[in-house]
Protein backbone atom coordinates (compact mmCIF):
# COMPACT_ATOMS: atom_id res chain seq x y z
CA UNK A 1 0.00 0.00 0.00
CA UNK A 2 1.42 3.40 -0.92
CA UNK A 3 2.20 5.82 1.88
CA UNK A 4 -0.46 8.47 2.44
CA UNK A 5 0.39 11.84 0.93
CA UNK A 6 1.42 14.57 3.36
CA UNK A 7 1.73 17.42 0.89
CA UNK A 8 0.56 17.90 -2.64
CA UNK A 9 0.99 20.81 -5.04
CA UNK A 10 -1.19 20.91 -8.16
CA UNK A 11 0.01 23.36 -10.79
CA UNK A 12 0.88 25.86 -8.06
CA UNK A 13 2.12 29.25 -9.22
CA UNK A 14 3.14 32.46 -7.52
CA UNK A 15 3.60 35.64 -9.51
CA UNK A 16 4.84 38.96 -8.18
CA UNK A 17 3.97 42.33 -9.63
CA UNK A 18 7.29 44.17 -9.89
CA UNK A 19 6.02 47.00 -12.12
CA UNK A 20 7.13 50.52 -11.54
CA UNK A 21 4.58 52.95 -10.09
CA UNK A 22 1.62 53.66 -12.36
CA UNK A 23 2.60 57.21 -13.27
CA UNK A 24 6.13 56.29 -14.28
CA UNK A 25 4.75 53.39 -16.25
CA UNK A 26 2.37 55.64 -18.16
CA UNK A 27 5.12 58.14 -18.92
CA UNK A 28 7.53 55.47 -20.09
CA UNK A 29 4.71 53.58 -21.88
CA UNK A 30 5.65 50.38 -20.15
CA UNK A 31 3.54 47.32 -19.53
CA UNK A 32 3.16 45.72 -16.15
CA UNK A 33 6.12 43.60 -15.20
CA UNK A 34 5.21 40.25 -13.69
CA UNK A 35 7.86 38.10 -12.08
CA UNK A 36 6.87 34.47 -12.36
CA UNK A 37 8.76 33.15 -9.33
CA UNK A 38 6.91 29.84 -9.40
CA UNK A 39 5.02 28.98 -12.53
CA UNK A 40 3.06 25.76 -12.40
CA UNK A 41 4.69 23.26 -10.06
CA UNK A 42 3.13 19.90 -9.15
CA UNK A 43 4.49 17.27 -6.81
CA UNK A 44 3.57 15.03 -3.89
CA UNK A 45 5.43 14.26 -0.69
CA UNK A 46 4.44 10.92 0.90
CA UNK A 47 4.47 10.76 4.70
CA UNK A 48 7.77 9.95 6.34
CA UNK A 49 9.86 10.78 3.28
CA UNK A 50 12.04 13.67 2.16
CA UNK A 51 11.53 15.55 -1.06
CA UNK A 52 14.31 17.98 -1.95
CA UNK A 53 14.08 20.87 -4.36
CA UNK A 54 17.36 22.00 -5.91
CA UNK A 55 18.21 24.76 -8.30
CA UNK A 56 20.21 27.92 -8.67
CA UNK A 57 19.34 31.25 -7.13
CA UNK A 58 16.15 32.70 -8.54
CA UNK A 59 14.72 29.37 -9.65
CA UNK A 60 11.80 29.67 -7.22
CA UNK A 61 12.67 26.97 -4.70
CA UNK A 62 12.32 29.22 -1.65
CA UNK A 63 9.07 30.62 -3.00
CA UNK A 64 7.70 27.07 -3.12
CA UNK A 65 8.70 26.66 0.54
CA UNK A 66 6.81 29.81 1.44
CA UNK A 67 3.77 28.72 -0.54
CA UNK A 68 3.75 25.43 1.29
CA UNK A 69 3.70 26.96 4.76
CA UNK A 70 1.20 29.61 3.73
CA UNK A 71 3.51 32.63 3.90
CA UNK A 72 2.47 33.33 0.30
CA UNK A 73 -0.89 32.68 -1.30
CA UNK A 74 -0.69 30.87 -4.64
CA UNK A 75 -1.60 32.99 -7.67
CA UNK A 76 -2.86 29.84 -9.38
CA UNK A 77 -3.18 26.17 -8.55
CA UNK A 78 -3.70 24.40 -5.26
CA UNK A 79 -1.74 23.24 -2.24
CA UNK A 80 -3.05 20.34 -0.16
CA UNK A 81 -1.79 19.47 3.29
CA UNK A 82 -2.77 16.01 4.48
CA UNK A 83 -5.57 15.88 1.92
CA UNK A 84 -7.03 19.25 2.92
CA UNK A 85 -6.70 22.57 1.05
CA UNK A 86 -3.92 24.54 2.70
CA UNK A 87 -6.04 27.56 3.60
CA UNK A 88 -8.43 25.32 5.58
CA UNK A 89 -5.56 23.46 7.21
CA UNK A 90 -3.95 26.76 8.21
CA UNK A 91 -7.18 28.00 9.78
CA UNK A 92 -7.30 24.96 12.05
CA UNK A 93 -4.74 25.23 14.86
CA UNK A 94 -4.62 21.48 15.38
CA UNK A 95 -3.56 21.07 11.74
CA UNK A 96 -1.35 24.14 11.66
CA UNK A 97 0.82 22.97 14.52
CA UNK A 98 1.70 19.87 12.53
CA UNK A 99 3.71 21.96 10.08
CA UNK A 100 6.84 23.96 10.94
CA UNK A 101 9.65 25.67 9.09
CA UNK A 102 13.41 25.92 9.61
CA UNK A 103 15.08 28.91 8.00
CA UNK A 104 18.49 29.43 6.48
CA UNK A 105 20.03 32.05 8.71
CA UNK A 106 20.16 31.06 12.39
CA UNK A 107 21.44 34.56 13.19
CA UNK A 108 18.30 36.24 11.87
CA UNK A 109 15.65 33.70 12.83
CA UNK A 110 16.08 33.80 16.63
CA UNK A 111 14.96 36.83 18.64
CA UNK A 112 18.15 38.19 20.25
CA UNK A 113 16.26 39.58 23.26
CA UNK A 114 14.58 36.33 24.25
CA UNK A 115 16.06 33.55 26.31
CA UNK A 116 16.40 30.27 24.44
CA UNK A 117 13.80 28.61 26.68
CA UNK A 118 11.24 31.28 25.72
CA UNK A 119 12.09 30.97 22.04
CA UNK A 120 11.53 27.23 22.15
CA UNK A 121 8.42 27.45 24.35
CA UNK A 122 6.72 30.04 22.16
CA UNK A 123 4.95 27.55 19.87
CA UNK A 124 3.94 25.49 22.95
CA UNK A 125 2.33 28.58 24.46
CA UNK A 126 0.86 29.85 21.18
CA UNK A 127 -0.90 26.55 20.54
CA UNK A 128 -1.71 26.11 24.23
CA UNK A 129 -0.20 22.64 24.23
CA UNK A 130 1.04 22.73 27.82
CA UNK A 131 -0.46 25.20 30.26
CA UNK A 132 1.67 24.54 33.29
CA UNK A 133 4.85 26.69 33.37
CA UNK A 134 6.99 24.08 35.03
CA UNK A 135 5.90 21.38 32.60
CA UNK A 136 6.65 23.76 29.72
CA UNK A 137 10.21 24.12 30.96
CA UNK A 138 10.52 20.37 31.32
CA UNK A 139 9.43 19.96 27.72
CA UNK A 140 11.96 22.63 26.61
CA UNK A 141 14.67 20.70 28.44
CA UNK A 142 13.66 17.51 26.62
CA UNK A 143 13.72 19.28 23.27
CA UNK A 144 17.17 20.76 23.96
CA UNK A 145 18.47 17.32 24.87
CA UNK A 146 16.92 15.91 21.73
CA UNK A 147 18.91 18.30 19.52
CA UNK A 148 22.16 17.70 21.39
CA UNK A 149 22.20 20.73 23.71
CA UNK A 150 21.99 20.86 27.49
CA UNK A 151 18.70 21.72 29.29
CA UNK A 152 20.72 24.40 31.11
CA UNK A 153 21.27 26.20 27.77
CA UNK A 154 17.66 27.37 27.97
CA UNK A 155 18.71 30.15 30.32
CA UNK A 156 21.10 31.66 27.78
CA UNK A 157 20.54 34.15 24.96
CA UNK A 158 21.09 33.34 21.27
CA UNK A 159 24.30 35.39 20.99
CA UNK A 160 26.01 32.97 23.37
CA UNK A 161 25.81 30.21 20.79
CA UNK A 162 27.70 29.40 17.58
CA UNK A 163 25.96 29.12 14.23
CA UNK A 164 25.56 25.37 14.44
CA UNK A 165 24.16 25.52 17.98
CA UNK A 166 21.71 28.23 16.92
CA UNK A 167 20.48 26.03 14.11
CA UNK A 168 19.95 23.30 16.71
CA UNK A 169 17.85 25.78 18.70
CA UNK A 170 15.80 26.55 15.55
CA UNK A 171 15.20 22.84 15.10
CA UNK A 172 14.19 22.44 18.77
CA UNK A 173 11.70 25.29 18.36
CA UNK A 174 10.32 23.76 15.18
CA UNK A 175 9.87 20.44 16.97
CA UNK A 176 8.17 21.94 20.03
CA UNK A 177 4.65 21.74 18.59
CA UNK A 178 5.12 18.03 17.75
CA UNK A 179 4.97 18.61 13.98
CA UNK A 180 4.94 15.83 11.41
CA UNK A 181 6.04 17.97 8.51
CA UNK A 182 9.06 20.29 8.38
CA UNK A 183 9.90 22.71 5.60
CA UNK A 184 13.67 23.29 5.66
CA UNK A 185 14.83 26.22 3.54
CA UNK A 186 18.61 25.89 3.09
CA UNK A 187 19.05 24.83 6.74
CA UNK A 188 22.80 24.30 6.48
CA UNK A 189 24.01 26.75 3.86
CA UNK A 190 25.02 29.38 6.43
CA UNK A 191 27.09 26.82 8.33
CA UNK A 192 30.65 25.59 8.02
CA UNK A 193 31.07 22.19 6.49
CA UNK A 194 32.02 20.29 9.68
CA UNK A 195 29.00 21.80 11.47
CA UNK A 196 26.79 21.16 8.45
CA UNK A 197 27.52 17.45 8.86
CA UNK A 198 26.37 17.62 12.51
CA UNK A 199 23.07 19.27 11.57
CA UNK A 200 22.38 16.91 8.64
CA UNK A 201 23.05 13.90 10.87
CA UNK A 202 20.71 15.34 13.50
CA UNK A 203 17.96 15.92 10.96
CA UNK A 204 18.24 12.38 9.65
CA UNK A 205 18.18 10.94 13.18
CA UNK A 206 15.10 12.97 14.10
CA UNK A 207 13.34 11.86 10.95
CA UNK A 208 13.97 8.23 11.81
CA UNK A 209 12.97 8.63 15.45
CA UNK A 210 9.89 10.86 15.01
CA UNK A 211 8.77 9.75 11.55
CA UNK A 212 9.03 13.29 10.17
CA UNK A 213 8.30 14.33 6.60
CA UNK A 214 10.69 16.90 5.10
CA UNK A 215 10.48 19.33 2.24
CA UNK A 216 14.14 20.21 1.88
CA UNK A 217 15.27 23.22 -0.14
CA UNK A 218 18.93 23.49 -1.11
CA UNK A 219 21.29 24.58 -3.85
CA UNK A 220 23.87 22.02 -2.79
CA UNK A 221 23.47 18.77 -4.71
CA UNK A 222 25.84 16.82 -2.47
CA UNK A 223 23.79 17.73 0.61
CA UNK A 224 20.58 16.85 -1.21
CA UNK A 225 21.95 13.44 -2.11
CA UNK A 226 22.58 12.64 1.55
CA UNK A 227 19.09 13.48 2.81
CA UNK A 228 16.54 12.85 0.06
CA UNK A 229 14.22 10.10 -1.01
CA UNK A 230 13.14 12.04 -4.05
CA UNK A 231 14.59 15.13 -5.70
CA UNK A 232 13.01 17.83 -7.85
CA UNK A 233 15.19 20.08 -9.99
CA UNK A 234 13.84 23.57 -10.59
CA UNK A 235 14.72 26.05 -13.30
CA UNK A 236 13.09 29.45 -13.79
CA UNK A 237 10.04 28.71 -11.67
CA UNK A 238 9.34 25.28 -13.11
CA UNK A 239 10.15 21.73 -12.16
CA UNK A 240 12.22 20.24 -14.96
CA UNK A 241 12.96 16.84 -13.44
CA UNK A 242 11.55 14.86 -10.52
CA UNK A 243 12.97 11.46 -9.67
CA UNK A 244 13.92 9.12 -6.84
CA UNK A 245 17.23 10.36 -5.45
CA UNK A 246 19.32 7.38 -6.55
CA UNK A 247 17.92 7.49 -10.07
CA UNK A 248 18.48 11.22 -10.37
CA UNK A 249 22.11 11.08 -9.28
CA UNK A 250 22.85 7.92 -11.20
CA UNK A 251 21.07 8.77 -14.43
CA UNK A 252 20.10 12.44 -14.62
CA UNK A 253 18.01 12.98 -17.75
CA UNK A 254 17.12 16.65 -18.25
CA UNK A 255 20.05 18.46 -19.94
CA UNK A 256 19.94 21.12 -17.20
CA UNK A 257 20.22 18.52 -14.44
CA UNK A 258 23.10 16.92 -16.25
CA UNK A 259 24.84 20.25 -16.73
CA UNK A 260 24.35 21.06 -13.06
CA UNK A 261 25.97 17.80 -12.03
CA UNK A 262 28.80 18.34 -14.49
CA UNK A 263 29.50 21.74 -13.00
CA UNK A 264 30.05 20.69 -9.40
CA UNK A 265 33.71 20.80 -8.47
CA UNK A 266 34.43 17.57 -6.65
CA UNK A 267 37.10 16.00 -4.52
CA UNK A 268 37.55 13.01 -6.74
CA UNK A 269 40.08 14.88 -8.89
CA UNK A 270 39.61 12.47 -11.75
CA UNK A 271 40.99 15.19 -14.00
CA UNK A 272 37.90 14.86 -16.17
CA UNK A 273 37.47 17.60 -18.71
CA UNK A 274 33.99 18.83 -18.20
CA UNK A 275 31.82 20.92 -20.40
CA UNK A 276 30.68 23.89 -18.35
CA UNK A 277 27.19 24.94 -19.34
CA UNK A 278 27.36 28.26 -21.15
CA UNK A 279 25.26 31.33 -20.52
CA UNK A 280 23.33 32.36 -17.45
CA UNK A 281 19.86 31.97 -15.98
CA UNK A 282 17.50 34.33 -17.84
CA UNK A 283 15.36 36.81 -15.94
CA UNK A 284 12.12 35.33 -14.58
CA UNK A 285 10.38 38.57 -15.65
CA UNK A 286 10.99 37.79 -19.32
CA UNK A 287 11.39 34.01 -19.43
CA UNK A 288 12.17 32.56 -22.86
CA UNK A 289 9.24 30.98 -24.72
CA UNK A 290 9.05 27.20 -25.00
CA UNK A 291 11.36 25.27 -22.71
CA UNK A 292 12.91 27.72 -20.21
CA UNK A 293 16.32 26.08 -20.63
CA UNK A 294 16.46 26.17 -24.44
CA UNK A 295 18.80 29.21 -24.82
CA UNK A 296 21.49 27.33 -22.90
CA UNK A 297 20.64 23.81 -23.98
CA UNK A 298 22.97 22.09 -26.44
CA UNK A 299 20.14 19.76 -27.53
CA UNK A 300 17.56 22.48 -28.24
CA UNK A 301 15.77 22.54 -31.57
CA UNK A 302 12.83 24.41 -33.10
CA UNK A 303 10.23 22.58 -31.02
CA UNK A 304 12.02 23.47 -27.77
CA UNK A 305 11.88 27.15 -28.70
CA UNK A 306 8.11 27.14 -29.15
CA UNK A 307 6.42 24.42 -27.12
CA UNK A 308 6.61 24.21 -23.34
CA UNK A 309 7.50 20.60 -22.44
CA UNK A 310 5.25 18.79 -19.95
CA UNK A 311 6.44 16.59 -17.10
CA UNK A 312 6.16 13.04 -18.40
CA UNK A 313 7.84 9.74 -17.50
CA UNK A 314 11.22 9.55 -19.20
CA UNK A 315 11.88 6.86 -21.75
CA UNK A 316 14.42 4.50 -20.29
CA UNK A 317 13.94 5.56 -16.65
CA UNK A 318 10.13 5.62 -16.24
CA UNK A 319 10.38 6.44 -12.52
CA UNK A 320 11.74 9.83 -13.59
CA UNK A 321 9.38 12.63 -14.54
CA UNK A 322 11.12 14.97 -16.92
CA UNK A 323 10.11 18.04 -18.92
CA UNK A 324 12.24 17.79 -22.03
CA UNK A 325 11.43 17.31 -25.72
CA UNK A 326 14.90 15.92 -26.40
CA UNK A 327 14.40 13.14 -23.85
CA UNK A 328 10.90 12.41 -25.13
CA UNK A 329 12.10 12.13 -28.73
CA UNK A 330 15.21 10.19 -27.78
CA UNK A 331 17.47 12.99 -29.03
CA UNK A 332 19.59 12.77 -25.88
CA UNK A 333 21.01 9.44 -27.01
CA UNK A 334 20.11 7.75 -23.72
CA UNK A 335 18.26 4.83 -25.27
CA UNK A 336 21.15 4.12 -27.64
CA UNK A 337 23.38 3.81 -24.58
CA UNK A 338 25.34 6.89 -25.61
CA UNK A 339 23.97 9.80 -23.57
CA UNK A 340 25.35 13.04 -24.91
CA UNK A 341 25.19 16.68 -24.13
CA UNK A 342 26.00 17.80 -27.65
CA UNK A 343 23.71 17.96 -30.67
CA UNK A 344 23.39 14.91 -32.84
CA UNK A 345 25.98 14.96 -35.65
CA UNK A 346 24.13 15.94 -38.81
Amino acid sequence: MPEPIMLELRDAARHFDVSRPLLQRVIAREDKRILRAVDGVSFQVPKGTTLSLVGESGCGKSTVARLVVGLYQPTRGEVFFDGMPLAEARADASKRQRMQMIFQDPYASLNPRWRVSDIIAEPIRAFGLIRDRRKQLERVGELLTQVGLSPLDGQKFPHEFSGGQRQRISIARALSSNPEFLVCDEPTSALDVSVQAQILNLMLELQKRLGLTYLFISHNLAVVRQVSDRVGVMYLGKLVELAPSETLFHTPRQPYTRALMEAIPDLEMTGRTRIPVGGEVPSPITPPPGCPFHPRCPLANERCRIEVPAMIPARGTPETLVACHAVEEGRDGFLDGKPRLTPEPA
Binding site: S194, Q196, A197, A222, E246, L267
Partner: peptide, 11 residues
Protein backbone atom coordinates in the same frame (compact mmCIF):
# COMPACT_ATOMS: atom_id res chain seq x y z
CA UNK B 1 37.16 18.40 7.44
CA UNK B 2 37.52 16.21 4.34
CA UNK B 3 35.34 13.54 5.94
CA UNK B 4 32.54 15.97 6.73
CA UNK B 5 32.11 17.06 3.11
CA UNK B 6 29.02 15.24 1.80
CA UNK B 7 30.05 13.17 -1.21
CA UNK B 8 28.16 13.66 -4.47
CA UNK B 9 29.01 10.19 -5.77
CA UNK B 10 27.11 8.11 -3.21
CA UNK B 11 24.93 8.28 -0.14
Amino acid sequence: LMGSIPPISHR
